[in-house]
Design a protein around this nucleic acid. Structure first.
Lengths: 348, 348
DNA sequence: TGTTAGCACTCGACGTTTTAGAGTGCTAAC
DNA sequence: GTTAGCACTCTAAAACGTCGAGTGCTAACA
């Protein structure tokens, strides 16, 4: 892998910073004046030509300045971006009273973040991710209804009614219960994937359709009550960035924001992984969600110490102010910790 | 008030129907051919000139066809629109199982409606509107916190913490409690308006600021827990109508949709009025919400028999397909009645 | 008196041309 | 290795011309 020499790095840095500010392609003359290395525009041009060949920048058309490519942004985020020393500034704009319900807090936080950053924001309610199934119970309620109860190690309880065509006899119910418990206990909710399901159905034999229903129900319950607890704000901020605000793109993006389920995809990956609790930056195609290939997405996981986790996400143009966004998120992580860790703050 | 003669009425009808279909200004020649009255374009022109003078139609620019004015639309909705005989068609697209939670039902309904109509839609959860205040209690919790409890005749209880600068003595608390109860008891939540508030503050004397806080808190509590139970869908449908989809307007509209509180304004008026449970059509400026002056809003109240009410709203361009929308809403009213009146459907 | 044909006029939509300016790549000189 | 100079490219924006839909008005007609 070829490194960039110092001068190229400086120039790339200057190009990107300039572009982040203006949103306009930046030309050689601009850099010649803007940067502290005293070089004529012609020299810069030569270097820029190299940088383009290396894939860090590109030209929208023949006689325009250069803009950063995804690779360029990536290089910037990884190597060039200043990491400000974290000094936690209190959230003062909205007085978040600890007596408020968690829902209110999250709504306020996501709104505040959207206002501060001028990007679209989202936040998920803290939940027992990667929590393990402790107990499953199917009970016949009447001729056509079965109640499924799922309990996790965090003692989270989910109920779900299932309609069946015909009553199952006690023995079958017992067998199904045992099967479900032996197969699923100890698995985290995320680990119940297609493979597990296939195996389970196989073992259930003629009752595989019921298993299927049960799992669908469980999955749905989990989805609804947990994954879907997503609050968003500032979706219309995208209109502030011309590169995103033509009808087509804006419509798609806002649709994605409406369909909160899609947003879950943004943060699930990070929530699922045990280690990663830092801040993730997805640039363009790196994003887990197709709709956002023209955007950058920054996500952070916040933790409540007792295994509860939630995620925050910011969606904006590729030329987003990464430094500011990352700062904001870091800050918020600490803030949320403080808020929710207070004894009376946990009420939901 | 001058009536429109039959011919003018027919022409106006033709203009509007044509415009609803095409979205293009409609000229005299078009009407001459389109309508069944055999008149030359010249005659139509004369009549159109009259209609314009009367305010029912207008010209976007000198040499263009005519489009309906708000007054024209109003006339159409009130007099011209066909009232289809209601035949209730079952909602089949989404199998709404009665075992689902109400929240799920509402989300599905609002989505279905958005898909069917191609407009933006909203629905509020049923709630005890125009319920009367039964009891108010302020209690000093600690040096700086007061707890306000409001109970309504439906036995709905609202709590709200209020921060105060200094502790109030018992006598004052007592007086405030009496004042609040004598002033507000028996009033519906909607009847506590600015007038009431002003009177109340006057009587509270030096503690008027606390009253203010209390009322703010009460209002906020009511708003949040009830009014804010709003589900929306199809916000991006507005991009389907060029007259609404320029950045500026789209952004404002979608913002309004994000701020669900604003949407409450759309239906509150109707929910508050005892009688009106039909279908309301707001055209342009008639809309209770400023942001929607370029749209039409159609709302309907659905009832659950036991005093619970919710509202459905559709927001679209002025040239919306009123007949279809009204039909849809009528249909839905009946459907929701059916769904929620089933014994096990009430779980929320 | 109401209706119609005819005509001049208006005005936006749309495609073409022109212009201005920013930026590049290349070459030759330093 | 750096820089000045220059020809070239390409876009965005302005300027222009044309087309056609639609109007208002007038005069003729039934």
């Amino acid at each position: 892998m070829h490194e960039l020499d110092e001068r190229k790095t400086k120039i790339l840095n200057a190009i990107i910073r300039n572009y982040l500010e203006t949103g306009e392609p930046v030309g050689s003359r601009t850099i010649s004046k803007y940067s502290d290395l005293n070089l004529s525009s012609a020299t810069i041009r030569n270097e820029m030509s190299d940088l383009e060949e290396l894939g860090y920048i590109l030209q929208p058309h023949t006689s325009a300045g250069r803009i950063p490519s995804d690779l360029g942004y990536r290089f910037y985020v990884d190597n060039l971006m200043k990491q400000k020393d974290q000094e936690v500034t209190e959230i003062k704009e909205f007085m978040i009273e600890r007596t408020e319900k968690m829902e209110q807090v999250l709504k306020q936080v996501v709104k505040l973040l959207a206002n501060n950053t001028n990007y679209a924001t989202m936040i998920t309610a803290p939940s027992y991710h990667r929590n393990k199934v402790k107990f499953i119970q199917l009970s016949q309620i009447d001729e056509t209804q079965i109640l499924a109860v799922v309990v996790t190690e965090g003692n989270m309880v989910k109920n779900k009614m299932i309609s069946v065509k015909e009553r199952l006899d006690n023995e079958t119910m017992l067998k199904l219960n045992i099967l479900l418990n032996t197969s699923l206990n100890g698995l985290s909710l995320e680990e119940i994937n297609l493979g597990t399901i296939a195996r389970l159905k196989e073992q259930a034999g003629i009752h595989s359709d019921i298993i299927s229903d049960v799992l669908d129900a469980v999955a749905a319950a989990v989805q609804e009550d947990e994954g879907l607890q997503i609050y968003t704000s500032g979706a219309t901020n995208i209109f502030k960035y011309p590169e995103l605000s033509d009808s087509q793109k804006a419509s798609e993006l806002i649709s994605a924001f409406e369909e909160k389920q899609q947003l879950a995809g943004l943060v699930n990956r990070q929530l699922a992984s045990q280690e990663e609790t830092g801040i993730q930056v997805y640039i363009g195609d790196e994003s887990p969600v197709e709709t956002m290939k023209d955007c950058s997405v920054v996500t952070a996981v916040y933790e409540l110490g007792d295994g509860m986790q939630g995620a925050i996400g910011i969606i904006g143009p590729k030329r987003m102010d990464y430094e500011n966004v990352v700062d904001n998120l870091k800050n918020l992580k600490v803030q949320l910790d403080n808020i929710f860790k207070k004894p009376d703050g946990k009420e939901g």
